[in-house]
């Protein structure tokens, strides 16, 4: 069955079994690496992507439900040459060990920061309830998300200033 979906702003047409989890479509059909298979059961969060602004577990999302919806993966947050603020924060604070869980963490954080640019520590922990890390990078992940909030705010300030000037 042919299904159309929008990933990181680009439309795609894939020919797959409609019950295929989005995760496999992203990795297999669209050759994206960010979303990772971790458990396939919705327990670990390494497959997290953002759909219409909210974090969802792509291993639990049949692709047929994605038609017409806006999906963002970590590839949509910036590139290795021009990393986005969330990516910059994780690089700056060296918030990875093996790094396998990190894209999922970042997508959960992305959804949170969209909704709440300066989240409290409790809100960050709450948003990451479903995201597991095995290397024990938790302290750095928390710090990187706080830092990303700052970077995003800093990035939006000049615009605001311009707005006032204009």
């Amino acid at each position: 069955m042919s299904i159309s979906l929008t990933v990181n702003g680009s439309p795609h047409q894939v020919d797959v079994d409609p019950a295929t989890p989005l995760l496999y479509v992203l990795r297999d059909d669209l050759a994206l690496n960010g979303a990772k298979y971790g458990c396939g059961l919705g327990q670990c969060g390494s497959c997290t992507v953002v759909m219409d602004g909210e974090a969802v577990l792509s291993c639990m999302v049949p692709v047929m439900l994605v038609e017409g919806r806006e999906i963002t993966t970590i590839e949509g947050l910036g590139t290795i040459d021009e990393p986005g603020p969330l990516q910059q924060a994780f690089i700056e604070l060296q918030a990875a060990q093996c790094g396998y869980c990190i894209p999922g963490m970042m997508m959960s954080a992305h959804a949170l920061l969209r909704r709440k640019p300066r989240p409290s520590d409790a809100e960050i922990r709450e948003a990451l309830t479903t995201n597991l890390c095995r290397c024990g990078t938790h302290m750095r992940i928390l710090a990187a998300i706080r830092r990303a909030g700052e970077l995003m705010q800093a990035a939006s300030l000049p615009e605001a200033d311009e707005g006032r000037a204009g």
């Binding site: 327990q43 969802v56 479903t130």
Partner: peptide, 21 residues
């Protein structure tokens, strides 16, 4: 809303479907 994971205890876990459906 699913069944959120218990903190450090074996427990049923079910993902929330509110953002999907």
């Amino acid at each position: 809303f699913g069944l959120p994971p218990a903190d450090g205890e074996a427990s049923a876990v079910m993902p929330a479907f509110r953002h999907l459906l």
